[in-house]
Design a protein around this nucleic acid. Sequence first.
DNA 1: GGCATAAGCGGGGTAAAGTCCGGTTAGGTC
DNA 2: GACCTAACCGGACTTTACCCCGCTTATGCC
Lengths: 199, 199
Amino acid sequence: MTWGTPQPERADAARNRQVLLAAARELLAEAGPDCLTMDLLAERSGLGKGTVFRRFGSRAGIFQALLDDSERELQERVLSGPPPLGPGAPAIDRLIAYGTARVRFLADHHAVARATIDGRHAAGRRRPLSEIHLRVLLREVHLPGADIEVLAGQLAYALDGPLLLQLFAGPELEGPEPTARFEAGWRDLVERVCGVSGA
Amino acid sequence: MTWGTPQPERADAARNRQVLLAAARELLAEAGPDCLTMDLLAERSGLGKGTVFRRFGSRAGIFQALLDDSERELQERVLSGPPPLGPGAPAIDRLIAYGTARVRFLADHHAVARATIDGRHAAGRRRPLSEIHLRVLLREVHLPGADIEVLAGQLAYALDGPLLLQLFAGPELEGPEPTARFEAGWRDLVERVCGVSGA
DNA sequence: GGCATAAGCGGGGTAAAGTCCGGTTAGGTC
DNA sequence: GACCTAACCGGACTTTACCCCGCTTATGCC
């Protein structure tokens, strides 16, 4: 009995989770997020509706799981990829690089990110992973008198919020042009907050 | 025919809007946001369900209208109230004062604010009013090389995001203690962004 | 004041989210 | 290998957001 993780999930449950995620991605790719219904997902995956809800709790939960899965790849690059995104560069450079990577990530996954939010269920909203990364990096920069916890939260939303609003509103702002402005804005914000005197 | 405003709304329609908003507030007060259903609202207001949807577009739209209504009062104080929230104080002081007022506002209305968000419909998400105010004030502060539009969006979300997350997650964080931390965090952020050298 | 027209209105209908509970099965124990 | 328990599974059921289309009524013109 090797409990490297306490495995709170039974083998069949884990298998079904994978089946469901795969079916969800499939439906997502062929018909878009709006057409992904719980009934359809259950039917397509060959499982019952009760199972779908047991696994993900709600419709938003499915998208959250999908997004988490995609985010893990970004997390890997932050934790052990090449600098400046990964370890080895000065903290400020890593902060800026993270912003750029995050903007790209959100631009790529905005349809899923949108389906994540749900005003009815509290479960949907979680502390974004960004906040953890930002907190660690901000601690490396020495900022006397700053409340790092709060500051990390503020920056996490400063990064995600405006871009998501833009992506939700506009029809399809593809291409590098609009995201470039957000990336530049993020760099500027980070430098201001960290007291880099550009003047 | 005095069209001071182009009056896109018929007289009876305007009256019904008021009836519906009043009924919504009533239901909200006595049973909470989760119990406010469209059918119940229609029944209580003595109008048809179709009318409710015609007026507000969706469930989230009702809460948005409610929130807009409440926000108007804050807006008044910003535009023509006493300083430092209203005109007459230095821009930085006004920025800080606005943050404090906004934190209080969100803390008071978080239940309604939460019901506003809806991942299904694009109509729900709008540019927050904060962003307009922040843009004006930031322009007064002379920030060379800053993209004011983007910066205003970033700060608007830095202000709302973390607090809303906190309010959504916790059961009921009433009292002045937790909001005080956000208010202090906002002051610090504004001073950093505007280059006030506190050190 | 009657009329044309366009907007407002109503409530029944549909589809999809989320719940429930009886039957089933995995996984550990003796 | 048999048994026990707890977790899992399925699909019928309920609730509710949202749509639709024929009826009603406000408003401007003759």
